[in-house]
Amino acid sequence: MRKKNLKLLMFLFVGYILFTLFLLAITLPKFLLFDKWLMSKGIYMIASNVHESLTYLSLKEASFYTKKSKLVRFDKLDLSVGIPYILLKGTCADGNLNVKMYLFGGIDIKAKNFKCFENFRIKSINLSINNGIEGTAELLDLKVRDTKVDNLSISFKGKTFDGQGLISGQRLTGSGTLILNREDILKSRLNGTIAGSGIRFVIYGSLDNPVLEIKK
């Protein structure tokens, strides 16, 4: 009898906790939660218009910054909660960027003709991130410190990647390795080399702050 009472008590306690969390989820402002999460990552947001519902947040003319510079802008950015994922859909001019973040791990990223990042343009991206990164990405007008990469195509194969780039009219090819940071994807670290026409570069650092240097 005592065991049954204990099980009933635990059931009621867990039910109360879940119900409380549900009430918090539907009553707390999604915009403020999203803004607070971004600030914990060192990113700041400005939007001209905000609309939210039970499982939906929509921003218009939204821009994102770090303390040093502007990162990206969206004409419209929608965030919605599904089961079991969070979906981000952004548009800018005639381009789009979609990110699906699964609650139990894993991220899918797809983009086409997205031109509103400050330091590069996306021609196409189709990536799946879990224990590694799988898929392809093609970027245009990428600025890496003092070097401009006119075109960069990368094929990710888990913990390695192959790529080719166009720098100052020179076609370069290369490969490298990737150390994935699941807590912050942009802090994942890469290390590789690209070469061609007697020129050899090394690329290293994090995805959000890569370094490209000439290797002598």
Rank of each mutant, 00 (worst) to 15 (best):
L28S: 14
S40W: 11
F31W: 08
L21M: 13
L38S: 02
L172Y: 04
K41Y: 14
M1H: 15
G158W: 12
N209F: 06
L57Y: 10
I179E: 10
L142P: 03
L207P: 04
T66G: 13
T20H: 09
L152N: 02
V144R: 05
I43A: 05
D75K: 01
S58H: 06
I133V: 15
I86M: 05
L54Y: 02
G174P: 01
F117A: 05
L140Q: 04
N126Q: 11
K100C: 02
I167T: 05
F11H: 04
D141R: 03
V149P: 02
Q170K: 14
I194C: 03
K112E: 14
F19V: 13
K110Q: 11
I185G: 00
G198Q: 06
G106D: 03
E52N: 12
W37D: 12
L87C: 00
L24D: 12
S153E: 07
G95I: 00
F34H: 04
T66C: 12
T177I: 15
K215Y: 14
N130L: 12
S40H: 13
I185S: 03
M45W: 06
D150Q: 12
K148V: 09
Y16D: 10
N5C: 12
L172Q: 00
T173K: 04
G174H: 05
K148L: 14
Q164L: 11
G82Y: 02
T136C: 06
L139F: 11
L23A: 10
T193H: 01
L77K: 01
Y65R: 02
L178H: 02
L9Q: 13
F34G: 03
I179M: 11
L24C: 13
N191L: 09
G42E: 02
L21T: 11
G95R: 01
D78K: 10
L97T: 00
S197P: 01
V99N: 02
K159V: 09
G135W: 01
F34Q: 09
F11K: 01
S124T: 09
L33K: 04
K100R: 09
L23T: 15
V144D: 01
K68C: 07
N49C: 13
A111F: 08
K30M: 11
G90A: 08
S128D: 09
F34P: 00
L21P: 03
F13M: 14
F120S: 00
F114Y: 03
L140I: 07
K41L: 07
S206A: 10
G169D: 04
L23R: 08
I133E: 00
K60C: 06
P29E: 10
D78W: 08
N181L: 02
G196S: 02
G106H: 09
I17T: 12
D78C: 08
D35K: 11
K112M: 08
I129Y: 02
L97C: 01
F156Q: 13
F22D: 15
M39P: 01
R171N: 09
I46A: 11
N126D: 11
D108A: 10
V202L: 15
D146H: 15
C116N: 08
V99Q: 07
K36V: 00
N181T: 00
M101R: 10
F156C: 13
R189C: 04
R182K: 08
K100T: 08
G196W: 00
N113Y: 04
G90Q: 02
P29Q: 06
K30A: 13
S128I: 07
L12V: 14
T27W: 15
D141F: 08
G192W: 05
P84G: 09
L28P: 03
S69P: 03
N126I: 06
